[in-house]
C-alpha cells in the first residue's frame, strides 16, 4: 500500500479512527500534522521532541493515533500535565489538543492560568458547541437558546468567548480557524510552532451526528455548509469581533500576536 505523506506521524494500525463521518476533528488533525511536517522538514522541529497531550472527549482521542509521544489523560487536565512535561524538559515541543468542554469547561481554570503564565505550550481547542462523546449535552460554547439533551427548552446561558478570555490573560498568540478552512489551521499551527509562550488556536468544527442532527441538520454536508457560511476570515481582526454568535456568525483570523517572554524564560529555564 502506498503511504500517505503524513503516515509517519500516525499509528496507521490503529486506523480507522472513531470519529463519525462528517466530523471535523480528522480534518483539524491532518492540518496540524501538515504544519508539524513543514517545521520538521525545515529542521526546526525534531519528531522525537513532539508531545501531544489530550484530556478526554472525541478530540482527545487524537493522542492515540499519533506516532510521536503522546498522553491521553483525564478530563480537563491536559494543560497542567503538559505544563509539567514542558517544565521538566524544555526541549520538548508540547501541544495540547482538546474539545471545548475539555479545555474551556472542566479545564477552564487551567486554561486561564496557563495563559496568564504565558506557559510555553500550543493549545488547540476544537469547538463543536456540544458534549459529543457523552451524547449531546450543553457545552460552555453552546449558543444561547439552542436545544441540547440537558437544556431541552433551550440553553439559557451565554457562551464563553475563549478568544477574549485567553487574550486578556496575556497569551502570546490567539487565533481562530475552522475545519471548513483547513489551510488556516495549517498556517496558524505553523506560526504557533515557531513561537514561545502560550499559543491558543480555536478550531470551529462541525459535529453532524450529535450537534447537527439534534438541531435539525439531517445531512452532514448541510451543517458543514452552514458553518462555512458563518465563518468569515478577516486579516488582523480585533478582539471586539471575536464573539462566537450562531446567528451572526464568527470571525476567523489571528487576534493576538505578541512576543512576550514565555514562562520558561521568566524562570530562567531556557
Amino acid at each position: 500500500m502506498s503511504a500517505h505523506p503524513l503516515d509517519k506521524y500516525l499509528v496507521t494500525k490503529r486506523l480507522p479512527h472513531i470519529w463519525c463521518p462528517g466530523c471535523g476533528i480528522g480534518v483539524a488533525l491532518a492540518a496540524i500534522l501538515r504544519a508539524i511536517d513543514r517545521r520538521v522538514r525545515e529542521g526546526a522541529l525534531k519528531p522525537e521532541n513532539l508531545v501531544m497531550v489530550t484530556g478526554i472527549g472525541c478530540t482527545a482521542r487524537a493522542a492515540i493515533y499519533v506516532s510521536f509521544d503522546s498522553a491521553h489523560t483525564i478530563h480537563g487536565r491536559a494543560i497542567p500535565f503538559a505544563s509539567g512535561a514542558k517544565l521538566a524538559n524544555p526541549k520538548l515541543e508540547v501541544m495540547v489538543l482538546g474539545g471545548d468542554g475539555d479545555i474551556a469547561g472542566i479545564g477552564g481554570n487551567h486554561l486561564l492560568h496557563a495563559a496568564r503564565r504565558n506557559m510555553d505550550l500550543t493549545v488547540f481547542m476544537i469547538t463543536n458547541m456540544v458534549y459529543a462523546m457523552t451524547g449531546g449535552q450543553v457545552a460552555p460554547t453552546t449558543p444561547t437558546g439552542m436545544y441540547t439533551t440537558t437544556t431541552p427548552k433551550g440553553n439559557p446561558e451565554t457562551p464563553v468567548n475563549v478568544i477574549k478570555l485567553v487574550a486578556y490573560q496575556g497569551a502570546n498568540y490567539v487565533a481562530r480557524a475552522s475545519t471548513t478552512h483547513p489551510a488556516l489551521i495549517e498556517r496558524y499551527t505553523y506560526r504557533a510552532l515557531g513561537m514561545e509562550g502560550f499559543r491558543f488556536i480555536e478550531i470551529i468544527s462541525p459535529c453532524p451526528e450529535i450537534f447537527g442532527r439534534h438541531i435539525g441538520f439531517r445531512d452532514p454536508v448541510e451543517l458543514y455548509e452552514e458553518i462555512k457560511k458563518k465563518s468569515k476570515y478577516k486579516p488582523k481582526p480585533s478582539l471586539e469581533e471575536s464573539d462566537l454568535d450562531w446567528e451572526r456568525g464568527w470571525v476567523l483570523g489571528e487576534f493576538i500576536e505578541r512576543n512576550e517572554p514565555g514562562y520558561l524564560k521568566r524562570i530562567g529555564r531556557v
Binding site: 508531545v51 497531550v53 497542567p80 505544563s83 509539567g84 512535561a85 514542558k86 521538566a88 487551567h110
Partner: peptide, 13 residues
C-alpha cells in the same frame, strides 16, 4: 488538581 497532573507530566518527561 493542576499540581498533581503537572507532577505526572513531569515524571513522563
Amino acid at each position: 488538581i493542576g499540581s498533581i497532573n503537572a507532577v505526572i507530566g513531569a515524571a513522563w518527561a
